[in-house]
Measured scan of single mutants.
Amino acid sequence: MATGGRRGAAAAPLLVAVAALLLGAAGHLYPGEVCPGMDIRNNLTRLHELENCSVIEGHLQILLMFKTRPEDFRDLSFPKLIMITDYLLLFRVYGLESLKDLFPNLTVIRGSRLFFNYALVIFEMVHLKELGLYNLMNITRGSVRIEKNNELCYLATIDWSRILDSVEDNYIVLNKDDNEECGDICPGTAKGKTNCPATVINGQFVERCWTHSHCQKVCPTICKSHGCTAEGLCCHSECLGNCSQPDDPTKCVACRNFYLDGRCVETCPPPYYHFQDWRCVNFSFCQDLHHKCKNSRRQGCHQYVIHNNKCIPECPSGYTMNSSNLLCTPCLGPCPKVCHLLEGEKTIDSVTSAQELRGCTVINGSLIINIRGGNNLAAELEANLGLIEEISGYLKIRRSYALVSLSFFRKLRLIRGETLEIGNYSFYALDNQNLRQLWDWSKHNLTITQGKLFFHYNPKLCLSEIHKMEEVSGTKGRQERNDIALKTNGDQASCENELLKFSYIRTSFDKI
């Protein structure tokens, strides 16, 4: 039985969820670079991206490699990797027998973001014989899940209580170790020597080791999670996991709180800001991140802002960003909400898709409305799209047979046209069989910064309504002859009103 693990408890099935942008060198404390989270699957090609990484700022997932063999891993080693800020997950990587050479110096898994409450997941690794993470000293947050690894031993010899604050939620089941077939031998045991430290858990006094050649490092209890030197002297209180010299914040392997210019500090002093819960960055760093993602459509890219001495992905609820200094300031009234469309555009074809934009005031991208039916549609669209004030790209209304009016965009005031449909149009209306009105132009103002209007096959939309939009939106004169079809717009509506004058002759039985 794995020490510190839980057996036999019912657990939810383990679901495996399925960018080499360097964020800056980590400095003297770390020998390499800070790398983003990685999802490495199918083959070993991307694994080489770990070569210079000291910190993975995010998670590391290595999974679904069915053609790899043990010899493929023999020359692979990433000794610079010290810390993973989120979680480490391995799933069905064939041929991998140990992690001792792959990650010989991995010391800390912070667990800032977890995989279903777990910071370390080893699942269905069919050839893994031992973990071998002999320098792993601290899992700051989260638990361990090690399950269905039929060859995995050296679990009962690990004292997880020396690595985690609590072992109650560890789930370590259905491994070879369960069948008591392992016969784990710690260093020196074969020669009758006791080389590794022994600890007591559940009444068992057991030597602690990761492999037959690597003991588990056990520091004096007084050192807590700070770690200790090879001689057993406690590291500085700002260290986490390990250090090369005692009581020196510049000799830590990793930091308990924050890293700044080669030393570990309790908090980031001005003019620095907390970033990702582990390091200090200056304003320029946060500003660069903001600008890199301002026009990016890459998933996970955030326009970072500053709030409460932190550089964070977005302002919290009730705050909006001051564009001059990136500071989050309290909103006066309802907060603006910028919604970034991942692929640059979004099609609204149902109430469900409209709900995804609920509360958005600025759309960074283009909207395509293609709704053919739905219950209580006008009210639903207004509830979900009615706060949109600005669209950076274009607005396209296409084959939306259920629409009679666009009044559900009740606050839309600006279409920038930074991206144009077919390279020309910022407003595009095609084949809307029941569209009769755009907006009530006596109450609604709309500016279209650039781009043209396109109207074709809107049989109940009168040309007068379209011409009014040209005047109000500032697009009059931009359109070419064929942009607004004269014969297919309003051709099934009563669009022309003329005053009919009647004269009559009164007659009676005795007068003409």
Rank of each mutant, 00 (worst) to 15 (best):
N325L: 05
F258Y: 11
K191T: 15
T107D: 02
G192W: 15
D86G: 04
N150W: 05
H236M: 03
S161Y: 09
R74L: 01
P197S: 11
N295V: 03
T189L: 10
S284A: 13
L164V: 15
H290Y: 13
D177A: 15
D247K: 08
S213W: 04
L47P: 03
L90Y: 01
F66G: 09
H127Y: 03
T68P: 07
L81Y: 00
R69V: 08
K217N: 15
D169K: 13
D261T: 13
R162W: 13
G188R: 04
G232M: 05
I109L: 07
H226V: 11
N257F: 06
T199Q: 10
N52G: 15
Y171G: 14
H48I: 08
L88W: 00
I222A: 12
T189S: 10
N117Q: 06
E151V: 14
Y319V: 03
P79Y: 02
S296G: 10
D169W: 08
C264I: 00
I56V: 06
Y272W: 11
Y30V: 05
F283W: 08
F123G: 12
K310F: 04
K129M: 08
M65W: 02
L326W: 03
N242Q: 14
R297I: 07
C315F: 00
D101S: 15
M137D: 03
K100A: 08
I312L: 12
S213R: 09
T329M: 11
F115K: 08
I146C: 05
C311S: 00
I40R: 00
C335L: 03
P104M: 01
I146D: 01
C228M: 03
N149F: 03
S143M: 13
F116M: 09
S77H: 03
E124A: 05
I56R: 08
F116H: 04
S213H: 06
P330W: 04
D159R: 06
L76N: 01
K191Q: 05
S225P: 12
H212Q: 14
T107M: 06
C182F: 15
K217V: 10
N242C: 08
C286W: 00
W210L: 07
D75R: 03
L289C: 03
L44N: 04
T157M: 04
L89T: 05
C215R: 15
L260V: 09
T189K: 04
L88R: 01
I82V: 06
T85D: 01
T211N: 10
K67M: 09
N43V: 09
I139M: 05
Q299S: 04
E97D: 04
C215F: 08
H59R: 08
E314F: 01
G333T: 03
E124Q: 13
N149V: 04
S237T: 06
I56K: 01
D39G: 02
N135G: 13
A190Y: 14
R141K: 08
G37H: 06
S161G: 08
S284C: 02
V218C: 10
G142R: 01
Y273H: 06
L155K: 05
V206I: 04
L50C: 02
S237Y: 12
G192H: 13
H291Y: 14
D178G: 15
H48S: 08
G241M: 02
P316Y: 03
C328R: 01
G300T: 11
Y171S: 13
K193G: 14
Q303H: 09
V108A: 03
D184L: 13
I146H: 00
L174K: 15
P269M: 11
S237E: 12
I158A: 10
H48W: 07
T199I: 06
K224M: 04
C335Y: 04
F78R: 02
T199A: 06
I122L: 07
E314V: 04
R297H: 08
G111T: 00
I222E: 14
S166M: 15
G300F: 07
P270S: 02
C268V: 00
Y171M: 15
G262T: 11
I62S: 00
L136N: 00
N309R: 09
E314H: 03
I139Y: 01
N309L: 03
N308D: 05
E180A: 11
L133E: 01
L89F: 07
Y94C: 11
K251G: 15
S166F: 07
T68H: 09
Y30N: 12
H307N: 04
F115R: 05
P246V: 05
C219E: 03
R46S: 14
K217P: 14
T107H: 10
K129F: 10
E238G: 07
C186N: 02
D288E: 12
L120I: 05
I139F: 03
S323D: 04
R297K: 14
Q61Y: 02
S244F: 13
P336E: 07
H48L: 11
I139H: 01
P104K: 01
G241Y: 02
C268L: 01
Q204Y: 05
D178R: 08
H28S: 05
C264P: 01
I82S: 05
E57N: 10
K67R: 12
L327D: 14
R141Q: 15
C280H: 00
T68Q: 14
N170T: 07
T329S: 09
C280Y: 00
L164H: 10
L174W: 08
F205P: 08
C223M: 02
R69S: 05
N150C: 03
P197G: 08
C243A: 00
S98W: 01
F103M: 05
D184E: 05
Q287R: 15
L76V: 05
L102G: 02
R263L: 00
I62V: 13
G241C: 05
K191M: 09
G262S: 09
G333R: 05
N322L: 13
C301R: 05
H307E: 04
N202C: 06
